[in-house]
Nucleic acid binder design. Structure first.
Lengths: 196, 196
DNA sequence: AGCGTTTTGAAGCGGCCGATTCAAAAATGT
DNA sequence: ACATTTTTGAATCGGCCGCTTCAAAACGCT
C-alpha cells in the first residue's frame, strides 16, 4: 500500500509524556517534542496532530501506566490499611526522590491546563475517577472484612483519602519532609481503620 | 530630585498577580503584563525587574491578601469546628464560582513552577507554612477548650487538614460537585471533633 | 519494474517571545 | 530658569513559537 512508519507509536507517546511531565504544557515547545521523540516536526504533526492532541495522548498514556500502577497497589492482597498506606507512602517516596518527573502528571495537568482546556479537564477527571473508584472498592472491601469503620460511606471515605492523597502530593512539591507527610498518612488511616 | 512615578505600585502588582493567577506563569507574556498593568515595558522593567521577579512579587501579594483572609477565617470567634468548616467550604465555593481566577494561586505556583524555580518553591513554602501555622494554632485552641480530640498532635492534625484542604482544591478543578466536596469536609471534621 | 500512497527531512512561514535601547518628557531642588 | 534625575513611550533587538509546505524517499502491491 504505502510506506510504513519507522517509529514505534508507543515510544513516541512515552517520550512526549515524559517531556510534558517534566516541563509542563506551556513550557514544552514543539521543538522539544521533536528532539525528545526523535521525529521531525512533519512526522509528528502527520501522525499525531498538533501539540494539544499530543498532550491529550500523553495524559491517556499516564492513565494507562502510572495510574494503573497505583490502582494495582490497591488491588494487591493483604490488609486494606496496608494497601492504602502503601499507595500514599509510595507516592510520597516517588515525589521526594527527585526523578525529574515532578509529582503526578494528572494533578499537574489539572492545575496548569484544566481551567483553560475542557479536553484536559475531561481527561483528568477520568483519571481522578479511576483512582477514586479503586479507593471506594478497596474501602468497601475493608468494610465487609471488618477492617474499616462501616458507619461511614465508602464513597465519602474514598473522596477523603483521595483529597488527602492529592493534598500530600501538592505539599511534597515544596515541603520535602518525609516524616511529616507520613504522619498525615498514619493520622488519616487512624481515623477509620479498626484496631486489629 | 527626579520625576516621580505616575502609577501606584500596589495596583500594578495587583494587576500582575491577577494576570499570572488567571493564565499561569508560562502562558503570561510580558505584553499581557504591560496591557493589564497599563505600563509600558520599559516602566515595568525599570520598576520591577523582569517577569520572574514580577511573579515573585505577585506571590507575596497573594500571601498578603488572599492567604491573610484565609488566616482571618481561622482566627474568627466561634467554635473551632465551624471555623475549620468555614475555611474549607469558602474555598470550595470560591473554586466553583467561576471567577476566572482558578483555584489557589499558591497551589498553582507550586505545581507549575516550584520544581523548576527555587525562588518560587521558597515563596510557596512560606505561604503554606502560614496556613499550617494558623491551623495548628486553631486546633490547639480547640484542644484546650475541649472541642478537639486532645489525643492527637495538633501539628499532625494541622497537616492533615491542610492536605485535605489542598486536595479538595485540586479535585475542584475538574470535579465541580459541591456536595461531594463538602462531604469530605464533614467527614474530616468528624474524625477529630468531639460531639457537643 | 512501475504505480500509488504515505512518511520523512529540510526549509521556512508569519508571529510573538522576553528584554533592551534611547531620546523626549516630567518632575525636583536650587 | 536651570541642571539633575528618573520615568515614560516608541521602536526594536535576536530568537524562538506553533505549524506548514514540498519534494524526495521508502515502502506495498501488481
Amino acid at each position: 500500500m504505502a510506506r510504513p512508519r519507522k517509529f514505534d507509536e508507543d515510544r513516541v507517546i512515552d517520550a512526549a509524556m515524559d517531556t510534558f511531565w517534566r516541563r509542563g504544557y506551556e513550557a514544552t515547545s514543539t521543538r522539544d517534542l521533536s528532539e525528545r521523540t526523535e521525529l521531525g516536526p512533519s512526522s509528528l504533526y502527520n501522525a499525531f496532530g498538533d501539540k494539544h492532541q499530543l498532550y491529550l495522548r500523553s495524559l491517556r498514556k499516564y492513565q494507562e501506566t502510572a495510574t494503573a500502577e497505583q490502582v494495582e497497589l490497591l488491588r494487591a492482597p493483604g490488609p486494606v490499611a496496608d494497601r492504602l498506606r502503601n499507595l500514599l507512602s509510595t507516592a510520597i517516596d516517588t515525589d521526594l526522590s527527585g526523578t525529574g518527573r515532578p509529582g503526578c502528571f494528572a494533578i499537574n495537568a489539572a492545575i496548569e491546563r484544566a481551567a483553560a482546556d475542557p479536553d484536559v479537564r475531561d481527561e483528568v477527571r477520568s483519571n481522578f475517577e479511576v483512582v477514586e473508584r479503586a479507593l471506594r472498592d478497596t474501602l468497601a472491601e475493608g468494610q465487609r472484612s471488618g477492617e474499616i469503620d462501616p458507619e461511614r460511606s465508602a464513597e465519602v471515605l474514598a473522596r477523603q483519602v483521595l483529597s488527602t492523597y492529592y493534598g500530600l502530593r501538592v505539599l511534597a512539591r515544596v515541603q520535602p519532609d518525609r516524616a511529616a507527610l507520613l504522619d498525615v498518612v498514619d493520622n488519616l488511616l487512624d481515623g477509620f481503620t479498626r484496631s486489629s
